[in-house]
């Protein structure tokens, strides 16, 4: 993923057009309706998100369509889309694997997760597997430090990983199954790893 935001990173691979599906168009109108009259532009983030869910990424054509819908200059949409790292400005694989390497995850050995994912998928950060299934991305803190190390794959968090568990999650996805999201070491949410010691009721 390029960090140069001053221009589209893949000018040659931009689609010529974009249109919301009927369903997403209705959702877009619902998002716009949440804001007062004359404040349509406030719905720019929900609309970018809808476009990304529909296409997997946000193209310049999609941003232009959103600018038209919101009645703002196109540059105002480009500004927002380039500001947030969560908007993909170039195509990604079916599963976007975002590995957190910020300090708490790093201290819990996120480097091992990175190495495992790289060697398992055979790609580096910013790359997509040839079958178009996986894209690997290094990200800053995703706010799940108590369950470090963790990765985010599409909308789900997979936490309390080690190298083997991370590969296991990827293999499950590759088989077409959906691994159970959340901690992968058996604990529930962020309860103590060694089991509950307080608030245990009667015993």
């Amino acid at each position: 993923m390029s960090l140069a935001h001053g221009r589209p990173s893949i000018p040659d691979r931009q689609p010529v057009g974009f249109a919301f599906s009927d369903e997403n168009r209705a959702k877009a109108e619902a998002a716009i309706a949440k804001y007062p009259e004359g404040r349509r532009q406030s719905a720019v983030m929900p609309l970018l998100d809808l476009a990304q869910r529909q296409e997997g990424w946000v193209s310049v054509a999609a941003m232009d369509v959103i600018a038209d819908i919101l009645e703002v200059p196109a540059i105002r949409v480009y500004e927002v889309a380039t500001f947030y790292t969560m908007f993909n400005l170039e195509p990604v694989g079916e599963f976007l694997v975002q590995i957190c390497t910020t300090t708490p995850c790093m201290l819990r050995d996120s480097d091992a997760i990175v190495d495992a994912c790289r060697s398992h998928l055979g790609i580096d950060f910013g790359e997509t597997t040839t079958d178009g299934k996986f894209t690997l991305k290094e990200v800053e803190c995703l706010g799940a430090c108590v369950n470090a190390p963790m990765v985010q794959i599409n909308d789900d968090y997979y936490e309390d990983l080690d190298a083997a568990k991370a590969v296991g999650v990827l293999e499950t996805l590759a088989r077409g199954e959906t691994p159970v999201a959340g901690p992968q070491n058996g604990r529930r949410s962020s309860e103590p790893v060694s089991g509950a010691r307080t608030l245990r009721g009667g015993d």
Partner: peptide, 11 residues
């Protein structure tokens, strides 16, 4: 309105 500030921080 064709100019804007894209990216953030250092970018």
């Amino acid at each position: 309105p064709v100019l804007g500030a894209t990216g953030r921080g250092e970018d």
